[in-house]
Nucleic acid binder design. Sequence first.
DNA 1: CTGAAAGCGCTTACAG
DNA 2: CTGAAAGCGCTTACAG
Lengths: 334, 334
Amino acid sequence: MKSRPTILDVAKQAGVSKSTVSLVLQGASSVKDETRASVRKAMAEIGYVYNRSAATLRSSSSGLIGLVINDLRNPFFTEFAALFQMELAQAGFATVLANSDEDPKLQSQMISSLVEHGVSGFIISPAYGDEASTLAVLEAANTPTLQVFRTLEPEGRTFPLLAPDYLTGGRLAAEHLVAQGCKKIAFLGGLEGRPVTRERMAGYLSVLEEHGHEPLILTGQSTRAFGKTMAVQLRKDHPGVDGVICFNDLVALGVLAACPDLGIKAGRELRVVGFDDIEDGQDSYPPLTTVSCNIPDFAASTARQIVAWIKEGKAPPPESRSPVRLVIRASSSD
Amino acid sequence: MKSRPTILDVAKQAGVSKSTVSLVLQGASSVKDETRASVRKAMAEIGYVYNRSAATLRSSSSGLIGLVINDLRNPFFTEFAALFQMELAQAGFATVLANSDEDPKLQSQMISSLVEHGVSGFIISPAYGDEASTLAVLEAANTPTLQVFRTLEPEGRTFPLLAPDYLTGGRLAAEHLVAQGCKKIAFLGGLEGRPVTRERMAGYLSVLEEHGHEPLILTGQSTRAFGKTMAVQLRKDHPGVDGVICFNDLVALGVLAACPDLGIKAGRELRVVGFDDIEDGQDSYPPLTTVSCNIPDFAASTARQIVAWIKEGKAPPPESRSPVRLVIRASSSD
DNA sequence: CTGAAAGCGCTTACAG
DNA sequence: CTGAAAGCGCTTACAG
């Protein structure tokens, strides 16, 4: 492992001073094209590799962005993470990943580690619990920080929140089921009392009230397994239910998977709507009607905003909501 | 944004020299317990944050590991990435993520960027194509590099490969279907000629030959959509097929999703086996029989090996295969 | 067990 | 447009 060439080596090779090399590296417009070219050529010749640690130390900007996700195994977050990382790479930033796995202790630890690495910004879809400590670490970091999808601060906002318009999503889903003629519509999944659950549910509740329908709410884990269990329970305890709005697609896919064994025709006897529009829903049986949050746009917009904040100091507004839309498939309209 | 305290500030606060602070930071055993305690206390008092860029510059070890994945949206890889990241965090390393999205150009670019950030090691599940250029960038990095799941170097090995024993997996799947009484077993999905496809298929082929069965191979994309299409095509062109081994679970889930509309009873008339054991397969209808690669163990072992290589210079053997096992569920044994 | 000094590879003013 | 000098915050020998 011989040590890598430095800008001094490049300078020598190109016959200029190291300042000039540094300027070329930073893309400064003040360097003559000719000089720039010869510097670039020298770099290629000796296999120069930019050392960001050195640059970071001097300029205190690492080009690293910390992405902290509460549950990376949920395809919804994965899709976001993958797209966000790629957007960021385009803008010249690398993404340091941390999966907090819904564990606030782990979350604080990982954030601290990212701070040591000098990340220039944070994107966090936070795990709930021990909010004060997480917020304290983040605040101490004193670096642009965006909350996405969820917030640790239901009241007031230290860190701007970017989230889909969950409430409208809940409304769209409920209106659709009412329009399909459903008489008894249940809301399934979502942890009680969480802001996201509350918002999605609020949309559902307001529509039901407008139409004089009785609501039925069964909160719980947001997993396939919970969806399966609930399908069984609905059949047993609430046979009248003819439509369900699920907290997310995983729950909905669980419901759909349980239907055949229960002899329920999903999409006819039981109309099912999910939330998130993960890829799996396109190929389930039957294909899943769902509220799409348009993750590709959301990821691109998140990347743009954190980069703008870092580069130009423009903090986004305390809260922005991105549009959602209903994607109608056979699970609700057979 | 006032600048952060440095070890000098800590030293002043604690009344020791900055070397001592540095030694405490590194956990050197030569520092008196009492001194160590007072240094730690000083750090807490003034809110000191370790600056890794500075440490990296001097010691040329960043504590960053680059994870380059060909398709992060595939749940199989996501699960690996999430678990690997968490293992690594335990060992004091942060994970920088790059999704190459099966694009070799992007892959080279992202690797270069990670090299600039001074990653101490690479884990790569490579995208195929333009192998020479990817390998060149990696080689120039001159840092511990492990290939996982796939290799860019079918012959010889510059970078050790860690992969599940795909061949045995293919055999287990085929033997199981033969034991279930299947007479005509097809192999679905996997891109033609890729090493991973070849290995899984080889296991299948050898078992079929042992039993005097005719093989039927339909390669293609490894997606749910492909599985759905193939189910239709099987019904039309190869109605005799009573068992399928799919390249991965996504293909298998696609086949299962298509069965109801085709009037096929999956698990009886058509026995389906997948590969990977992603979570979704537990809750599909019917639950999916599959070859498990035991990702939690695999991720932990990968983390251990890269850390050992970095810290102790122990490179793993050129190739190691981890055990697989068949998980039998209703999709093949109703 | 602790201190003083040098240096990692850049960027940043400041001259010219 | 280019050079010489200082400094970012650590770690690393080397003395004591």
